[in-house]
Amino acid sequence: MLALALVIPLASGTAQASSPANHVRPADRTVTSSRVLAVPGTVNARDIGGYRTYDGKTTRWGVLYRSETLSRLPPEGVNALAGLGLGSVIDLRTAPEMQADGADRLPAGVTSIVQPVDDTSLFAFIGMVVRSKDPVYQQQQLGAGKADARMEALYRAFVTNPANRAALGAAIRTVANANKPTMFHCSAGKDRTGILADTILRAVGVPASTSEGDYLLSNQLRAASDAALKSQLKAAGFMQDPDLLDPLLQVRSSYLGAFRTQAVADYGSLGNFLTEGLGLDALTLFKLRSRIVG
């Protein structure tokens, strides 16, 4: 989902919540560190290390990170990012998102790799519905399960859209061939970022249930900022019932299930989706596991 601050002119400073209490400074990171990164300007930046695989190994800390957009980082956020030693950042946002929110603010020497994954016009749709300020229209567009259905359709399109598959495959190849830590993100760091993280984790042998837990963690980390955003939308007169946005602001098991089910329906198995759908060869998958799992 897109950060609504990108499409709705809200007062500055209210869309970002304070950092969760379990944030840690990059300099303090060890193999037992908190998963959540202390990068000012983000609420959903984290390490995907520490997950056990089927064969009893563990994904490495400090190798692969996921986040929301990095376009609103203050200088101290850029400095915190520099402490991660990143070589590249993969940006999954579309051109309209980047035009609205700006390019990532990255430390010197970090390469930005743009691999846009289509949002099925969700960015434009959210802006249109919220800016209408019409509670009847908003109910018609988002109520009675329509917002949930739209999100499930978005997740299925991650599989059915050839350009999406190409972008996801290219992103995974970048991770597999990297020689420095890598970060990937979209706008809110939960949908496109979530399915890329899920695909990578399962590809290297992390159980589906564990990977789903990583996916659902976005709800916890984004809860405060989402609540603040809804409160402001109501106070500003954009929405009488901002809870209509919950299906768009949250991640849900049914969304991830739609993605996984579509991949199996189209390709028969996760393995076939990786090789036939995403175009990943055996050597790339070997490199990916060698890179991520220790």
Rank of each mutant, 00 (worst) to 15 (best):
M1G: 08
L2E: 14
A3R: 09
I8C: 13
S19N: 04
V24H: 04
R25M: 13
T30A: 08
V43L: 03
A45T: 09
R46G: 06
D47C: 00
G49H: 03
G49A: 06
G50Q: 00
D55T: 04
G56E: 05
T58H: 01
T59W: 02
R60Q: 10
Y65P: 01
Y65A: 00
R66C: 04
T69Q: 12
P75H: 00
V78G: 00
N79P: 01
E97A: 06
G102R: 01
I113M: 14
D119K: 10
T120D: 11
S121Y: 14
V129R: 08
Y137L: 07
L142W: 12
K146A: 11
A149S: 08
V159I: 04
N161M: 05
N164E: 10
A176Q: 06
H185Y: 09
D191M: 07
D191W: 04
A203Y: 15
V204F: 11
Y215A: 07
A224T: 02
A227V: 08
L229T: 06
L233G: 09
A236E: 14
Q240P: 03
Y255F: 09
Y255T: 07
Q262M: 15
S269E: 10
G271Y: 15
N272Y: 13
L274R: 11
L283F: 09
I292P: 01
I292D: 01
G294I: 07
